[in-house]
Nucleic acid binder design. Sequence first.
DNA 1: ACCTGAACACCGTTCAAGT
DNA 2: ACCTGAACACCGTTCAAGT
Lengths: 210, 210
Amino acid sequence: MTTHQQFSREAVLTAAEELVRTRGPQALTMRRLAAELGAAVTAIYWHVGNREALLDELVQRTVREMGQIRARGATPAARAESVALALRRKLRERPHLIALVHERGLTELMMLPAQRALVHEAHAAGLRGEAAAQAVRAVQFQVVGFVLVERNRERAPRQQPGEPDLWDVETAEQDPALAAALARTPDPERLFAASIRALVGSLWGAEAGG
Amino acid sequence: MTTHQQFSREAVLTAAEELVRTRGPQALTMRRLAAELGAAVTAIYWHVGNREALLDELVQRTVREMGQIRARGATPAARAESVALALRRKLRERPHLIALVHERGLTELMMLPAQRALVHEAHAAGLRGEAAAQAVRAVQFQVVGFVLVERNRERAPRQQPGEPDLWDVETAEQDPALAAALARTPDPERLFAASIRALVGSLWGAEAGG
DNA sequence: ACCTGAACACCGTTCAAGT
DNA sequence: ACCTGAACACCGTTCAAGT
């Protein structure tokens, strides 16, 4: 046989990223990728080594693309809050890739711009040393953790027993409004905003303004 | 051939749980499980259907085993805090199984005992209706999210650029203590306690006592 | 330098066959 | 009712061979 399809390492990475972004890492099989590129499976190995190295490269790219975070608002607390909100939005744009970054232990590096912004606002609020570090990390963990929980909830659309069934007036401290609220699927947008406001408000030592 | 090894459905589940608990779900292959039981692969299919159904069963068991959560402390805020701490401990005892529960959308059901305890304390603190529901959910998300982040950090032992390299005095607002604190690997125990205290303290509208 | 097919050691699953 | 081996359609990866 003669040499058939010619394609760059770049083409491999692009096709792989497309697969991972739209259908998740489990959809990235070397054979499927080869088919997509119209080449033999083994050609991919020449370009990128193996599957693990390929995923590593995608992860590197994601870290680079995460870019800058700009704080907005009047008070340090409000500005810290805005960083958290922006961070969540960015993370949610590429959930599969973020999960990979996370598994490969590059979360810290990826979070650096946001972390710097939070450090700045913590300092502006008068926090110093260990206390500032803990406040910054608490917000970081909160955002990443929330996004992970949120994603998993979306992936598992209907809770198997159905949340509505679990709460009635009797189990909810005789509080009908509470029972109704717990029976509803939570609005992650509002829940996140409220949680972050509570956390930042407490750690930054002030009310976080809108 | 004559019938060789006889073994119960129970034996399959026990062996499978052992594999998942100690080495994670990816270590659970039908062939490995069969080898462990000294039987043919296909015998397992007779007992449990297929791999997916087997994992479902393990998940069900985990949910059942999560049991009760007892609140401890004097004030409602302190008691809510204790629920969060106990919940984190329980979740961390079986991380792989918890991840499976989560993927299968049974987190809500599993969290029910803890949720009831939190609802009780929220009510005791005077929170009602929607506000109480949001406070309870914020704590839930916080705990689960934290455990997920924490686990992933442990799985990826050394951050690839090394956190120490990322922070020096100049990048840390000229605050040497802050730079040192951010360069250290965070102590999850303290970070969790501080975050939960901040969140609960803010949402429950009072300081959370020890 | 870049691509090929054959081959190996793994998967989960189905099925007809045994007792 | 309970277990067997053969077979199928998938994996990731290695390797000698082509041009």
